[in-house]
Simulated assay, not measured.
Amino acid sequence: MIHIRPAHDLDARDMAAILSQIIAIGGTTAMTGEIDSEYILGRMRTAPDASAWHVAETPEGEILGFQWIAPHDLLPPEACSIATFAKPGRQGIGIGSKLFEATKAAARVLGYRWMDANIRADNTSGLTYYQSRGFEDYGRIDRYRMADGHVVDKILKRYDLR
């Protein structure tokens, strides 16, 4: 059974560990380098009145994944950016689906009209995930240079909050 709840500061270490694991595997996120709890806490504290963070956990409290929405400098004020991360080896068990329901509700409460997902074009699982939630392609970034120098294309997907 998966439980969804708002993330809090004490979750930052586990969220950083999941994200670091995903970065180390490669191929699904444009983030590079080691992520620590201070990075997560910094992100959580940026625009706290305009963002929402949720974790998925087991009944025993093991964090299985997390999702956040936040404003982004390149988006209009009625839009937020979304990011989703599931613990490697635990994908496909409903983590993303349950997180998205909580995130959608939070986005509406925060007054957003649509969500933007910015996904590497070679991240087939991420593209499939957002497509299955109802996100639609609205743009593309060709030859995006990541912090480590790798160049990837990105697909921009949009979800209208009706």
Rank of each mutant, 00 (worst) to 15 (best):
A147Q: 15
A17T: 12
H3C: 08
L127Q: 15
I2M: 01
H72P: 00
R108F: 01
A86D: 02
T58S: 15
E38Y: 04
H8V: 06
Y144F: 13
T84E: 11
G94E: 05
I18V: 01
L19K: 10
T128R: 10
I95E: 08
R140H: 15
P48A: 11
F66Y: 08
G26R: 04
T29L: 02
R120G: 15
Y138T: 05
A7I: 11
A47V: 04
Y129G: 06
R143V: 04
G61W: 08
A70S: 15
Q21P: 00
L64S: 03
W53C: 07
W68C: 13
R158C: 12
L75W: 10
E101R: 09
M146S: 07
T32F: 04
I18G: 03
I119L: 15
L64M: 11
D122C: 14
C80N: 14
G134T: 00
R45L: 04
E57S: 12
A70Y: 07
N123P: 13
S125M: 07
G89F: 04
W114G: 02
I22Q: 03
D36F: 10
E57D: 06
R13W: 05
A105V: 11
E136T: 15
W114E: 08
R133S: 00
I18K: 01
A83V: 10
D137L: 00
Y159T: 01
K104V: 09
A47N: 15
A102M: 08
R108Q: 14
I23C: 04
I4T: 07
T46F: 10
M1L: 07
P77A: 11
D9L: 03
H3N: 05
Y39I: 02
Y144E: 07
E60N: 06
A86H: 02
V151K: 13
A47Y: 13
D49I: 00
S132W: 00
E136S: 07
R45N: 15
Q91D: 02
Y39H: 11
W53I: 05
S97F: 03
A50E: 12
T103I: 07
G134M: 00
A105L: 13
P6V: 03
T124P: 01
Y159P: 01
E38M: 07
A83F: 09
G92M: 02
R145N: 09
I141P: 00
R13P: 05
M1F: 05
F85A: 01
D116I: 02
